[in-house]
């Protein structure tokens, strides 16, 4: 964990309202896939809190990583306009996803802006002979992102949209269910909105499943206790005990 000035190297609009930014610092610390950063959103408009954003791609050699985020309010609107300059941020935070040696087949389940961090898992484990089966859900074709990126590195990529405008119509979790006996994953990793996690839990699969949770945050480093997530063993801090939890543990 380090507090660094992150240099904005590139800003791309992926689709309307979704931005990809490349950030550089010569002293980036070690990174575990699924970790996030707590990024300053400037001090204009009286903003005091940082914005937690997941890492999409991490390039250790060039000390660059990428984030993909949707413009929601003032903070992300500010970030989406950045073309250069330095921004303070704490990197890299949380536990992230880690795969056991014996895991060879992984199902990834992403919903909307929950998709980006799943890519960092493929990036890390692809070269170690792990196969990835990717299932991404969006509200509509116009909201679909990163399909090319995931398509290139997944054994199989399936997409579902709520309105049926692209891929299959309906929940991505139902698409996963239909495929589960064919892809036979050793583990399922998911990131997306809570309703998606509920649907995933409702499938009652016997496969170990890990989900990346969201919560409004303060410090992002485990010190202020604001980011509580209710679990069967009491409140846990999403920023420090998570954001990745076993789905069995979380009270959704």
């Amino acid at each position: 964990m380090k507090e660094l000035f992150l240099n904005v190297r590139e800003n791309t609009t992926l689709i309307k309202g979704v931005t990809k930014i490349k950030l550089y610092n010569a002293n980036l610390p070690e990174f575990t896939p699924g970790q996030f950063i707590n990024l300053s959103a400037g001090s204009f408009d009286g903003l005091l809190l940082r914005r937690p954003i997941s890492v999409f791609k991490y390039d250790a050699e060039n000390k660059i990583f990428e984030i993909v985020f949707e413009v929601k309010g003032k903070g992300t609107a500010f970030l989406s306009r950045l073309k250069g300059g330095d921004l303070p941020g704490t990197v890299f935070l949380g536990n992230g996803f880690s795969l056991d040696q014996n895991v060879k087949r992984v199902a990834l389940v992403g919903g909307g802006l929950g998709c980006p961090p799943l890519y960092s898992v493929i990036e890390r484990y692809k070269g170690r002979g792990v196969k990835f089966y990717t299932y991404l859900g969006f509200s509509s074709q116009s909201k679909a992102i990163l399909l090319d990126d995931f398509g290139k590195v997944s054994e199989r990529l399936k997409v579902a949209t709520d309105d049926g405008s692209y891929g299959e119509k309906g929940y991505i979790t139902d698409v996963l269910k239909k495929d589960i006996d064919i892809i036979k994953p050793d583990v399922i990793l998911a990131c997306g909105p809570t309703p998606m996690f509920k649907a995933l839990k409702a499938l009652k699969l016997s496969i170990p499943t890990y989900i990346s949770m969201e919560a409004r945050m303060g410090c992002g480093i485990g010190a202020c206790s604001v980011c509580a997530c209710a679990t069967i063993s009491g409140n846990k801090r999403v920023c420090a005990d998570g954001p990745v939890f076993n789905i069995k543990e979380v009270i959704l």
């Binding site: 604001v226 509580a228 409140n235």
Partner: peptide
């Protein structure tokens, strides 16, 4: 005794301020 505090969300950002409702989790 140990306390779990209040349910999430427990923080909100306001103009130049933040509101918290952690409720003494410790």
């Amino acid at each position: 005794e140990k306390r779990e505090g209040n349910p999430s969300p427990r923080i909100a950002e306001t103009y130049g301020g933040i509101l918290n409702s952690v409720g003494l989790q410790n």
